[in-house]
Nucleic acid binder design. Sequence first.
DNA 1: TAAAAAATTTAGACTTATCTAAATTATGAA
DNA 2: TTCATAATTTAGATAAGTCTAAATTTTTTA
Lengths: 217, 217
Amino acid sequence: MNTLAEENYLKSIYHLSIDAENVSTNQIAASLNTKASSVTDMLKKLSDKALINYTRYQGVSLTPSGEKIAVNIIRKHRLWEYFLVEKLKFKWDQVHDMAEEMEHISSAELIDRLDEFMDYPQHDPHGEPIPDCNGRFNASELTPISALRVNDSGTISGVRDHSSSFLQYLEKQQLTLGKKISIMEIVEFDHSMILQIENKKEIHISREAANNLLIAL
Amino acid sequence: MNTLAEENYLKSIYHLSIDAENVSTNQIAASLNTKASSVTDMLKKLSDKALINYTRYQGVSLTPSGEKIAVNIIRKHRLWEYFLVEKLKFKWDQVHDMAEEMEHISSAELIDRLDEFMDYPQHDPHGEPIPDCNGRFNASELTPISALRVNDSGTISGVRDHSSSFLQYLEKQQLTLGKKISIMEIVEFDHSMILQIENKKEIHISREAANNLLIAL
DNA sequence: TAAAAAATTTAGACTTATCTAAATTATGAA
DNA sequence: TTCATAATTTAGATAAGTCTAAATTTTTTA
């Protein structure tokens, strides 16, 4: 088995790999709130274990076995988040930190039974797809609202930022999963957008918010 | 907060304190599968934190704040065991190790909601009482079968040994929680006992088994 | 009650994961 | 294409938790 620190590095590298082929030492350090020198040490260790491909100064990528571990942690994280919201009635902005601890519970049988108990949910409370017990899942085909044009519309299906400040803001604006929105206007100056929610209320959101709100077309 | 190692020491000291006022270094070492010298180091640390009363060579006891932490861990352990058996349909001999990991999940609100979700169970799958959110619970008034006389009877309500080998043996003999048993005969030579289960089947159990099987009279 | 045995503690070392500061390598702008 | 800057790595230190071996204290027993 792997240590908690190793698992967190693998998970971080996995998430950062979505935007780039190779992940840099500084990116990992920033995402784990640690120093670049600590990252270098851990990269050597993970490389020795054949969980990452690492060449000095060149950044890293996960090997198939490293990716398998990372996906399994993500599966556990998302299933526990679903459990916390659906069964224990937490709000979607409350569950991230708890799931961050729970994702390290090791038993595979436990997580498979949890999956069954909840009837094999496909998405976590933030719209992220949940890998199945073989690690398979559909990479989400969601678009950030910021990529839409005036008159485009779709259903809110995910968020990129899981911070409770962002999620609470969305909740207050009624921008929750499942809501249908249409783009009414895009302000050229700052790329902020005016949306209509469910053909009723109109609201104005910043470019940054639009970048973090995902839509199924 | 406390580290995982600290929590495990406090829990161990709590359990050992049931049989004795003061707990010895060697007892702790045995129960945690570690060396006496490691225990001494940790005792100093816990003593500095005012979680235990410790005088060199004299053994230790928990302070009120140490006991509070220990009881909270035990509450979490037992609630998770109940969850695993009642919701995820694990057998009573499968849950100990998983709960050993889960008891360290820190959120108090999580565990209180789990308690509510399961409708405030009073006993874990092995008959141990579950402390409430204030750490209060009835110290169980159970008697080992080995203390009974011929013709005494009662209901199986708990086990002392949680090892899967013992629990599987009980399962096979139908000596599960809730069964009514009566003592038919005590063999003087080795103190083994012949019991009748639910006024039907008679079985023969060793003194050791009788010591670990608890009865409500 | 003194010596032997058992229990406990101390000393010093090791591992994991982290840090700061210094050195090295890569990159981008002139 | 060279040099300043940014990124990364190395060197050396620290803290937590563990270990072995040696020293000390307590307990037992003769």
